[in-house]
Simulated scan of single mutants.
Amino acid sequence: MAVFTTSGITIPTQFIDPWLGKVANGSTVSALSGAIPMQFGPGESMTFDIGEAEYVGEGANKSGSTVTPTVKTVKPFKFQKTVRWTNEVMWADEDHQLGVVRQVLDAIQPALSRALDFGVFHGINPMDGTAVAAMAEKLSDTTNSVEVATGDKPYANLDAADALVLADGYVPRDVALDPTMAAKFTTLRGTNSEQKLYPNFTLGTAVSELDGHRASVSNTVGAVGVASTATDVLGFVGDFSGIRWGIQRNIGLKVIEYGDPDGAGDLQRNNQVAFRAEVVYGWGIADLNAFAKIVDEVE
């Protein structure tokens, strides 16, 4: 059986592979837009507009077509999570050791999954919520914006966002919602009825259906409690296929037994061992006009 060996702990591939899958399923960006293969480092994503086909009458000449390329840069961004553990786990037999590794992986995975959203949506460092200068383009930069006023029906806000995206020539097939906005849809009932208006809509990152949209729900959308400055974002509507992202470097687990890898003190002195996992994402946004944001009312 193939294994990954990392500083004293041998991890079977079946532990790593499902976890890589979880990264692709643990964020709204990855739920609504599939990953594409990427090589490490900056790259370019190109799209071409060649216009429509030409009708040619009998005996008529054929015209040439103008090709308009659009080039977007895909940049790499590294995220890491370091977890400290008592070094007694290193004394355990192999079976118990692998059980601990599973726990460590399960603890680290959600943070690295959510990091993709925080970068694409808001361009922030999830650890302290501050802006990352290298993340120069994010969905929150779109100028298509709908402000939610007190008493607004949530479907009216969604319709308004759809209209902005459609006006720019894109199809608003997807929506990522903050739980506070999503809950407004789940509580709606028909007139004189207990029937839910959106029975197929669920509160979770897994894709469900909301009013003709592919929907995913996560608090990464608004980044409440994470962003150092309130974003006021309640949702993003648009064509999420315009987000080109991928994992440029596979996730590995490194065991660190010596030194001070995270500024929390010497490992040996504290009888600890550190587990570190890293991932390098690459992403780019084809056109911000393909998206609209729904924001909370500014008081």
Rank of each mutant, 00 (worst) to 15 (best):
L253D: 04
G265W: 03
L267V: 02
V224F: 07
I247C: 08
R244Q: 13
G252I: 07
G242Q: 15
V233K: 11
G252V: 10
V221C: 12
G259Q: 00
I256V: 09
G265V: 02
G265T: 03
F236N: 07
G263V: 04
S228T: 14
N250M: 07
D232G: 06
I251H: 03
G246R: 04
G259T: 01
N250H: 13
T231I: 10
I243K: 01
L253W: 02
G222S: 15
G259A: 03
G259W: 00
Q248S: 13
V255G: 01
I251A: 15
T220P: 04
I247E: 07
Y258I: 04
N250S: 14
D260F: 09
G242A: 05
K254C: 01
S241C: 03
R249I: 10
T220I: 08
G235N: 05
K254E: 15
T229G: 06
V237H: 02
S216I: 09
Y258T: 10
V255P: 01
V221H: 11
V224M: 04
Y258P: 00
G252M: 06
S216R: 12
D239Q: 12
V233R: 09
G235M: 09
Y258S: 06
V217M: 10
R244A: 06
G265K: 05
D232H: 13
W245C: 08
A230K: 14
A264V: 01
D262K: 06
D262A: 14
A230E: 14
G259K: 00
F240G: 01
L234V: 06
S228R: 14
I247G: 06
I256N: 01
R249Q: 15
Y258A: 07
G242N: 04
